[in-house]
Amino acid sequence: MAIAYRQRVDDDTEFALWKIEEEADELYNQLQLDADEQAYFEQLSKGKRHLHWLGTRVLLRKMLNTDAFIDCKVDAHGKPYLVNLPFQISMSHSFDYAAVMISKKSPVGIDIELIKEKVERIANKFMRPEEMDFIAADNNRIPQLYVCWCAKEAVYKCYGQKEVSFVNNILLEPFKFAEQGTLQVSLDKEPVKNNYKVEYMQYEDYMIGYVKG
């Protein structure tokens, strides 16, 4: 499978989606792994997690348009970074899709989620009561909740630090749902207070949120 969707955000930033239709061996054969990556890969259980890890790295390789070894590490906070290439990156995956966002100048965050009814049961784990007040009471309620989740997750990844509460530290401004749009998000965790404009879009049965710091 080639890249399923690709969008340039600005002159320095873009993201893309890869639909994972390959077997693990086919994806694996497109990569070059060092000893650490090989050891980590071998620890992964077979199945979707296995394919997601491969899919994000194949997609990263396609976006950077290189067959050379890409030294992609993960820092102490779990944020991926490139050792020898001048790009900031963010990765996500959900069911059949992998997503990667890259930027030459700024930190980035991306999240992709399959839209499912279960989000309403866990909404109080990531939404404040005042945020729930602006969620639609119609057929858009479930997709709008996924916009909220993806936006908070994208900001969390862009910020790149642990110990951040989606409920207490990442706050959403009211917005009306559309299949594509933007919303204002603030991250408030002493001593940091950052404001973000998160963009989102629905792609097939998935919601995607992405942000540039």
Rank of each mutant, 00 (worst) to 15 (best):
Val58Asn: 09
Val119Gln: 00
Glu120Gly: 05
Cys72Trp: 01
Ser94Glu: 14
Ile112Asp: 01
Phe95Met: 13
His52Met: 05
Gln88Val: 00
Glu120Phe: 04
Leu85Tyr: 13
Arg61Met: 07
Asp67Arg: 12
Arg121Asn: 07
Asn84Gly: 05
Lys125Met: 05
Arg128Thr: 09
Glu120Arg: 03
Arg128Ser: 06
Ile122Phe: 01
Asp71Val: 05
Val58Asp: 09
Ser90Ala: 12
Val119His: 11
Pro86Ser: 07
Lys73Cys: 09
Gln88His: 15
Ile70Gln: 02
Asp111Asn: 11
His77Trp: 15
Gly78Ile: 15
Val83Lys: 11
Thr56Gly: 14
Leu64Met: 05
Lys62Thr: 08
Ala99Pro: 00
Lys62Ser: 09
Ala123Gln: 00
Gly55Ala: 11
Val119Ser: 10
Ile112Lys: 08
Pro86Asp: 11
Ala68Tyr: 04
Val100Asp: 05
Thr56Cys: 14
Cys72Ser: 10
Gln88Tyr: 10
Asn84Gln: 06
Lys79Ile: 11
Asn84Lys: 12
Phe95Lys: 15
Val83Cys: 03
Lys118Arg: 12
Phe69Met: 14
Lys62Pro: 12
His52Ala: 06
Ile122Tyr: 00
Arg61Lys: 15
Ala98Gly: 13
Asp71His: 15
Arg128Ile: 02
Ile112Trp: 08
Asp96Ile: 02
Ile122Lys: 00
Ser94Tyr: 04
Phe69Gln: 10
Pro129Gly: 06
Arg57Ser: 15
Ser103Ala: 09
Ile110Met: 05
Ser103Arg: 02
Phe126Gly: 00
Met127Cys: 09
Lys79Asn: 01
Asn65Val: 11
Tyr97Pro: 10
Ile70Asn: 01
Met132Asp: 13
Met101Gln: 06
Asn124Lys: 09
Glu117Met: 13
Ile110Asn: 01
Met127Asn: 02
Val58Ile: 07
Ala76Thr: 14
Ile89Glu: 03
Leu59Gly: 06
Ser90Glu: 09
Ile110Pro: 07
Arg61Tyr: 07
Leu82Met: 07
Ala68Glu: 13
Ile70Glu: 03
Phe87Asp: 08
Ser92His: 10
Arg61His: 12
Phe69Ile: 09
Lys62Tyr: 10
Gln88Ala: 12
Asp133Pro: 03
Asp111Met: 04
Ser94Lys: 10
Ala68Gln: 08
Leu54Cys: 02
Phe95Cys: 08
Ile89Trp: 03
Asp75Gly: 06
Phe87Trp: 08
Phe87Thr: 08
Lys79Leu: 13
Met91Asn: 10
Leu54Lys: 03
Ser106Pro: 07
Val58Pro: 04
Gly109Asn: 11
Glu120Pro: 00
Ser92Thr: 09
Ser90Met: 08
Phe69Glu: 06
Thr56Gln: 12
Lys62Phe: 05
Glu131His: 04
Arg128Trp: 00
